[in-house]
Design a protein around this nucleic acid. Structure first.
Lengths: 267, 267
DNA sequence: CGAGAAATTGAGTCTCTTCAAACCCCGTGG
DNA sequence: CCACGGGGTTTGAAGAGACTCAATTTCTCG
């Protein structure tokens, strides 16, 4: 049964990290999920300036939010991993203020925004979960803001790696010791860290020389997690979701809380 | 009557920009509003690392979100104007990831977080409005992220001025032609623009020489709005709230929509 | 009127950028 | 099988912007 505690849908798993959902909540969400669609590397999942008529949920692969500037520069605003939503549900803007494109091949589900809105109105638990998601986003933005402006190039890059690793770990896509198949090109990384490709390259060499990361440019291998965290002043608190606090509306019979172990195991 | 269309509470006016609220919604909000409290300039309204047990709403004055770094540096993450909320309501974090302090003397209302949560669960309109507020926050963070990393010092500062002006205008605290009594010290501005005070000072002189802003350091006088916008590549779309779209639940009798003119006039 | 805070100026240094070019890996077509 | 080509990566060198340290002036308020 799709609404059981081991629900496989990555989006519902994500929401459940923030807020316990009952069977009706899950059912309602599953009912409105759109068909899944594939996106090739570099393809836009949602274009900057398009009207937000749907909500896109990344099911697999990685994507990035970005903004192009007049000078042709590109700033990456964040990465999306499985379970993340691309658009704000019911955001006030009539058009999107940034684009989202696939960093690796992606599978995405698009749901009409109105359907989603209805579920939110009818299901306070879901509304809470989405609210918390959006606050978590805010927290992420804040950390990027600090990181991007206040740290040196090596620290900035180290920070990105730390964050990426922890987030990947949370969706069971990475673990310490194993190299992470990050198919992100240096120019993407440079756009995220806000520096030129040349400087990014030199920065990577610096991190390699300090034996913090591996030498293979095609993947990310963390050699010294503690050292990387220390260099980046990385503190993962801001990434941690409150562990699904119990809640007000009647709980559906047979439901129980997922613990972290199960969440990872079921993916 | 406090719940009428000309409701004077700045927070309800703010929410109404995003989402039309009925009399019950407004009543419920007014009922839980905490007592107002004064904060002196520089005083913490909420401290970094404190548990988010309440929701603080700025009623008058200006405040800023900030984060202190290990090196003693401070990054300002955004400014709060009347009607803004300091904490995320029901964010997943067990402690705040940043502090909020008064930039000018402030009046703030603190409401217990749980009360707020209950209103959100029971009032989908309010939930929508808050959701949209939080998305608007996200939009603001994104623009800061771009601004902070991709623009030169004069552009960055010009951008901050543009944004501040438009936001102040939205709450009827500023208008073109009149100098704005911005009691923000240069060190705050420097922390927001992410540069040293010295460099900020030189940047201001640069903007003055170009006759974009006035020479008085104690207030912000915009001499050439168009020029400032152009320099900053400033596009205010991201600040615009959708103009209170009509909505689903039954509208309370006697209620009608506020238009922008009335909103400003009633403040 | 004095003291401290805020704003301003000067000088030297370093990070990061830009421009330019070489390199390397890998898939393609001759 | 190998030259060709192109994206991605790496290297070199010069210059601009921003930072730090240090000192001076101006403002503001008790």
């Amino acid at each position: 049964m799709a609404t059981g505690p081991f629900c496989r849908h990555v989006f519902i798993r994500r929401l459940s990290e923030f807020q316990e959902l009952n069977a009706f909540d899950k059912r309602a969400l599953l009912d409105i999920m759109g068909p899944s669609r594939k996106f090739a590397k570099r393809q836009d999942i949602v274009a900057d300036g398009s009207p937000p008529t749907s909500v896109s949920i990344v099911v697999s692969g990685a994507a990035c939010r970005y903004k192009l500037l007049a000078g042709g520069q590109r700033q990456v605003l964040g990465f999306l991993l499985p379970g993340d939503m691309a658009e704000d549900i019911g955001g006030g803007l009539s058009v999107l203020d940034h684009g989202v494109s696939a960093s690796t091949p992606c599978v995405v589900e698009k749901t009409p925004r109105d359907e989603f809105q209805k579920v939110l109105d009818a299901h306070p638990n879901v509304a809470r979960a989405v609210r918390q998601c959006s606050f978590a986003q805010g927290s992420l933005y804040r950390s990027w803001l600090v990181n991007t402006r206040r740290r040196s190039a090596p620290e900035r890059v180290a920070y990105l790696f730390c964050e990426q690793f922890v987030r990947l770990q949370a969706v069971a896509l990475a673990e310490l010791g194993a190299p992470i198949p990050l198919h992100i090109v240096q120019s993407d990384l440079a756009d995220a860290a806000g520096m030129s490709v040349i400087h990014l390259n030199r920065t990577l060499q610096h991190l390699r020389r300090r034996e913090l990361i591996g030498r293979d440019p095609s993947k990310l291998e963390i050699l010294d997690w503690e050292g990387l965290k220390e260099l980046a002043e990385f503190d993962p608190i801001y990434l941690q979701a409150q562990q699904a606090p119990p809640h007000r509306p009647a709980q559906a019979p047979g439901e129980r809380k997922l613990d972290g172990r199960e969440l990872l195991a079921s993916s």
